[in-house]
């Protein structure tokens, strides 16, 4: 079989409007979502298990929870510690990572600890924290920070350390001061990797806060999940989980928006 080169495929699409619509990215997105939701509906109706509701049941349950206000109340309880924790981790973690990337001594002291932390299942610390500090806001914020910081620190560190040599040399050859080279070259060049670290950190922070809510005396979205699981109200349980996943997508999207508006004018121009 001979593969069709991309260019000829593109020109074929240009000549045929139907094909152009069919091969458009949005079409595939919609198709992809419909396929998965359709499979979910089918599996729920068969049903594959008594505890597996169909998509339409789940959607209705979600609607009901949204209407009676239980969903938004639970969301607030989950989101507040998450946002506080992520903001704190982002500020402290990025600063620490950048500092270690610029200073060999700080690197020697700090980096191994964070490497160990990143590889380790830090979630295991959560029972300890709960034991010591209860289930308040402070504990949840601490959990988010512990989970999020290693990835943020290590990515910021790597980003600074791997700043493109030729750009740094360029800055030096045009007599940039150390501060100018850091501020105008190293940091902007490092920003994509730093933001990748923030995304990883956000993901683990999210994992942490939900885990804390599932393990500990139930609050927030975690409570919605465990409570409806315990009374076998599966559509509502599934709806709560779907909302959590949706929420994480929105958070990731927001982070990307922030990155592009702040640091990536070349992407905005496209």
């Amino acid at each position: 079989m001979i593969s069709v080169p991309t260019s000829s495929r593109a020109s074929a699409a240009r000549t045929n409007p139907l094909r152009r619509v069919m091969t458009h990215t949005i079409t595939f997105r919609i198709l992809s979502v419909i396929t998965v939701l359709g499979a979910w509906e089918y599996a729920g109706r068969r049903p594959i298990s008594a505890s597996f509701p169909s998509f339409s049941e789940t959607f209705a349950a979600g609607w009901e929870m949204a209407a009676d206000g239980s969903l938004s109340a639970a969301l607030m309880i989950t989101i507040v510690p998450l946002v506080i924790g992520i903001t704190m981790s982002a500020i402290a973690g990025v600063a620490a990572g950048i500092y270690m990337g610029l200073d060999r001594r700080a690197e020697w002291v700090g980096v191994p600890v964070f490497i160990v932390m990143q590889a380790a299942p830090l979630a295991a610390l959560i029972p300890l924290l709960v034991l010591a500090y209860g289930v308040g806001l402070a504990t949840k914020v601490t959990v988010v920070c512990i989970m999020a910081v290693p990835a943020i620190v290590l990515n910021s560190f790597k980003a600074i350390r791997h700043a493109p040599v030729s750009l740094v040399e360029m800055g030096e050859s045009f007599l940039g001061s150390r501060e100018q080279v850091i501020g105008k070259i190293i940091l902007p060049a490092a920003s994509p990797v730093i933001f990748a670290g923030l995304r990883l950190g956000l993901a683990s922070g999210f994992i942490g806060v939900i885990l804390a809510e599932l393990l500990i005396s139930p609050t927030g979205i975690g409570d919605l999940i465990t409570y409806h699981q315990s009374i076998a109200e599966y559509p509502k349980m599934f709806a709560a989980i779907a909302v959590v996943i949706l929420l994480s997508v929105l958070f990731m999207e927001a982070l990307e928006r922030i990155e592009i508006t702040l640091f990536r004018p070349e992407k905005r121009a496209q």
């Binding site: 030729s166 040399e169 045009f174 001061s177 105008k184 004018p265």
Partner: peptide, 30 residues
């Protein structure tokens, strides 16, 4: 490095996040 010398880099060493105008003015900006 000194102000009386300027370097043209083999791999261009342009800032990807800066426009042509800012790139050309970058030595002066520094």
């Amino acid at each position: 490095p000194g102000p009386e010398r300027a370097f043209v880099f083999q791999d261009f060493a342009l800032l990807p996040w800066a426009t042509v105008l800012r790139n050309v003015a970058f030595g002066l900006e520094l």
